[in-house]
Each structure stands twice: as C-alpha cells, then as structure tokens.
Design a binder for these strands. Structure first.
Length: 550
DNA sequence: CGGTGAATAACTAGTTATTCACCGGTGCCCTAGT
C-alpha cells in the first residue's frame, strides 16, 4: 500500500510529539503501528512485554487525537505512578486520577481537567465506571479514546474477583464508543479473544511483541518432598547474585522463606497483599534502590514493578497458568543482561491452584440467588440479593456472572433483572453448565503449566508455542537444551504438515471448535472454546481424522 | 488437593503415631468510629 500524505503526516507528528513532548529518542515500530491505528479510529489490542512501552502508546495517541483519554487501571498505586511519570515529562498532556484515595480537592481538580479541553488523560479503576454519575460526567466531557491497561485482568479477575471488569464493554458503549486500546503484557490467543469479546472491540489491530527473551535462562527443578524442595529453593537463592524475586504460593510462606534467607545472610523481605500499604511501599522502595537482595512474595508483587536489573526470578511453586508464570518470570533481565529463571516443581503443588480454580457455587446457592432476583421484581442490587439469599457478596458476584453468561439474567450498573424467565432449577442447571465450562478451561490452563514443567523438549519452544510465536528448534539457553535431552524430543514446527499449523481453526467431533496452539512431532495442542487446552496424539489425529480444518 | 497443628490414642509415665478439622490469592469501594 502506498503511504498517503496523510499517513506520513501522522508518522511525522508521532515522532515529533515523542521527541518534544515526552523527550523520547525513538518510537518502536510496534508502538507506532498501534498509535497510527488509534489515530485513524481503529481499536488496538497490544500484547507487549513489560518494558516495551505500552503506556507510550496511549500517551502519544492522546496527543495525536487531541482529546480526553480515559485509562482504566487496576491499582491506585499504578495510577499514581502514571500521573507522576507524565508530570515529569517535558510537555506531556496533563493527567489526573479519580479514585477513593483522592480527597475532595484532588477529585475536583481531576474533574476540572477532564471537563476542560485539549489532550488530557484521566485514570480510574473499573469500579469507578460502575457509578452512573461518573459515567454521565465522562459522557458529557466527551471521551475520545478509551484505554484498558493491564487488560488481562478482564479475563483473570472479571469472573469472580473484580466483576466490574466484565462490564467495561457496556461502559465503553455508553461513553459514545470511542476507539478502544487494550494493553497487556501477557495474553495467549484465547485470552486475547476473551478480552476483545468482553470489551466489545471491533476488528481490533492485534499486535504481539517481545515475547522471546533470549537472555533469560530457563530451568525447572523437580522435587519429591516438600522439605527437600524448601532446601533447594534456599540453597539456590543463596548462590544467586544481584537482586531477585522469590514467588511463593501463600502469605505464610513469604514470612517463612524470608526468615530462612535472612538466616543465610541475605537481605530478604516478605511481601503479600494483606500487608499494610506503608509496609508494601517500603518493600517496593528497598527492592528498587538495591537495599534488598530478594523479595519473597505472593502474586501480589508484580504490576507496576519497573526495575530493569532483576537478575533472577525463582518460583517455589507454580502459579495457575503459564501466562501468570511468564509474566512473573519475565520481570527478570529487562536490561537484556543474562538473568536466571527457575521453577521448583512438585506435581502436588498444582493442588492449591486447583482449589482456587474450583470454587464454583453449588446449585442450591445459585437457585437461591435466582429466586431472590425473581422475587425482587424489576431490577435488584447485588447487595440486596446477597442479603435476601443469605450468601456472601463474593458468592453473589460469582453466581450473577454465571447466570449472565448463561443468558438467564442481565446485570448492569442499574442492577440485575431476569431476561429469560425459567425455573430456579433450570437456572441452576444452566449456571452449572457455565461453571463447569469455566472450570474445565481453568483446569486445562493449569495442565499447560504442568506441561511446561514436565516437558522433555526445549522450554523456550514450549513457552513461545503457548503464546503462539515461532520458536527456534533449540534455544540453547534452557536446562533441557543445555543437558542435551531436548535432542531426544525436538520440537518441530515445520514438518510439512500445513493442515495443523498454529492458529488453524479446527473442529473435533467430541470437543467442538478450537484453534491449534502448537505442534510437536508426536502431538498437537489445541485450545477448544468450551473445553480449554487439549494435547492430542498426532498419530490418532491423522489416522482417525479426529481433527478437521474448518 | 496438600500442609499444618491440635487433640486423641497408644502404651506405660513422657514420647510417638494417628486422626481430623481447617485453611489457602489477587483490590477496588464505602462507611463508621477514633
């Protein structure tokens, strides 16, 4: 395609704005494509490794589009970082955050900014968009670009933990349907599809960048007893140099491991979500300015960490998906210097993950909540339903999401109402089906985590295959390649079998529609919409014709 | 699902084995009381 004068003009404006308003030397090709698309009014889903500069995309796009950009950001601390970062730039658009921690004065200033003119940025948590008043004010101010930062939260948190993430799509439409940018560092294609669907994006430009991190050496250590594993974790970290992270499964373990490491003479700090805000800030600060050798943390330590010289990331047990694992592990070596990434693994450790993934409400509970909705006549608030059905607010959230997914009720800002009047038994039945599907998919994601830990092939190839990227046959920088074991079972991407190359849509007589994720010599991994990941034997597939390209 | 710790049992007097209930991650928000 020819570069139109208009297109080259936009390109020029992007370069100039980057240099003069933000003080950046250059714009990455991936960033530029995203900004150009947004400038033209197209939705963008950008999956880019941390450190690639996702924030720059919406910041520059705001300057080019010249209006109000709304940024949904999951943590108040992150919002504060963004506002501060923009304040430090030479001539960046003004930015402010609307959240519960801003006092009346700051709130008024934030709204004054939003209701002004010119390029400007307003950050808020998804919960804020649950308020009718906030939506009306934003609509009146005229939203010109809608950004969802850390967009994987839509998929990972929306269903039970922070339900407002699932209602962002409706909020976007109510705000006049400006272009939408969804940004995340981690999303394999099924998660990309869910983000796009839940946010009601229209034919988004999908950009995936920077997954292959050649400087990370990948290793997995398998253990049989938990005592032996603990010793190995401690011994391993004692040998590391530089600052690093140890991820553990529970809050209690953060303290236990931190103490053991301190006894070995390391400056170790525990970190988890139940700690006070001030204690958390202190750990962050110690980590950043090199006063810590290692931070021992649950998954709470993560988003917003911006330290380039993390030399190692060790996991004492696996998280609940490879997305989560690679995001956590990927915090190592962002300066492109060599860094070590190690997973300590016992298959029993996946039990805790299964426990978290299997919390679906029982049918009786679902029926009870549904009866409360029926009884409420008209719309009901979740809080009222929780009281009427005598369940926790969290359970109500989970039930209502299932009933919504099953098409029985509609849940929006105004409340909950019945859209398909059925008996409580039928409602419970349909919700159970939705819950089972969700659990199957979660379970299959855990199984992919197991697959990575137990693979006999190259670890990097496994990871990149999971994220749908091409990988070298052998990376030379993982424990499998180093030991030579990988040669026994090489991952092969071009066996001449074009029918099942990655991203091919397929149908399986039993599992239904799916997409090929990766292929190896003897097996094919497929993500099925209603079943999750399945690894199929290539031989069975070929001989019995189980899988057909659509 | 697995780890943990308290309570109980077993068998003989303070230690060891078994059973069983319980717990486990991620953060917005708002409101009441210091």
């Amino acid at each position: 395609m020819l570069v139109t004068p208009q297109a080259s003009d936009i390109r020029q404006r992007i370069e100039t704005a980057a240099r003069e308003r933000f003080g950046w030397e250059s714009v990455q090709p991936g960033q530029r494509r995203a900004i150009e698309a947004l400038a033209e009014g197209r939705d963008v889903l950008a999956v880019m490794a941390t450190g690639y500069g996702k924030s720059a995309i919406y910041q520059l796009a705001t300057v080019i589009r010249g209006g109000l950009t709304v940024v949904v950001s999951p943590l108040i601390a992150l919002q504060a970082d963004q506002v501060e970062g923009l304040r430090d730039a030479p001539d960046a658009p003004p930015a402010a955050a609307v959240n519960s921690r801003a006092g009346a004065r700051r709130l008024a200033a934030a709204w004054e900014l939003a209701e002004g003119s010119g390029p400007r940025i307003l950050l808020l948590a998804p919960e804020q968009l649950g308020s009718e008043e906030t939506l009306e004010r934003l609509a009146a101010a005229g939203v010109d670009l809608f950004v969802v930062d850390e967009a994987h939260c839509v998929s990972s948190w929306g269903h039970d933990f922070r339900p407002d993430y699932l209602r962002l799509g409706a909020a976007i439409e109510q705000l006049g349907r400006s272009p939408v940018a969804a940004l995340t560092a981690t999303a394999p294609s099924p998660v990309q599809a869910e983000i796009s669907e839940r946010l009601r994006m229209r034919d988004p430009l999908v950009l995936v960048r920077g997954f292959d991190r050649a400087n990370l050496s990948l290793a997995v250590e398998r253990h049989t007893s938990s005592d032996e594993k603990k010793r190995a974790v401690i011994d391993g970290i004692a040998e590391e140099r530089g600052t690093g992270l140890l991820y553990v499964a529970t809050r209690r373990e953060t303290g236990e491991y931190a103490q053991s490491l301190q006894e070995r003479g390391l400056r170790a700090f525990a970190y988890h979500g139940a700690m006070s805000a001030s204690a958390r800030r202190e750990v962050h600060a110690s980590f950043h300015d090199g006063a810590a050798d290692v931070v021992v943390a649950t998954s709470a330590f993560g988003m917003g960490i911006d330290k380039a010289d993390v030399r190692f990331v060790v996991h004492a047990s696996p998280p609940d998906s490879l997305d989560a694992y690679y995001q956590e592990a990927g915090r190592a070596g962002r300066d492109d210097e060599p860094a070590r990434v190690r997973l300590h693994y016992r298959s029993e450790d996946l039990g805790l993950r299964r426990f978290f993934a299997s919390g679906s409400p029982r049918r009786g509970t679902v029926a009870g909540v549904y009866r409360a909705v029926l009884h409420a006549s008209g719309t009901a608030k979740p809080k009222e339903l929780a009281e009427a059905a005598e369940v926790s607010s969290r359970t109500v959230t989970s039930v209502l999401n299932l009933l919504s997914d099953a098409g029985v009720v509609r849940w929006d800002r105004r409340g909950v109402r019945v859209v398909d009047r059925v008996s409580p038994e039928v409602a419970a039945e349909r919700a159970a089906a939705a819950a089972e599907e969700r659990e199957r998919i979660d379970e299959s994601r855990i199984e992919m985590m197991r697959g990575y830990a137990e693979t006999s092939g190259c670890r990097r190839a496994f990871l990149l295959g999971y994220f749908g990227e091409e990988a070298p046959e052998r990376c030379g920088n993982c424990d499998r390649c180093a030991s030579g074991d990988a040669t026994d079972d090489p991952v092969s991407r071009s066996t001449g079998d074009e029918a099942f190359s990655p991203n091919t849509s397929v149908v399986h007589p039993e599992f239904g529609a799916g997409t090929v994720m990766s292929t190896e010599d003897d097996r094919i991994t497929v993500f099925f919409e209603h079943e999750g990941y399945k690894t199929l034997s290539r031989q069975a597939v070929e001989e019995r014709g189980l899988l057909e390209a659509e």
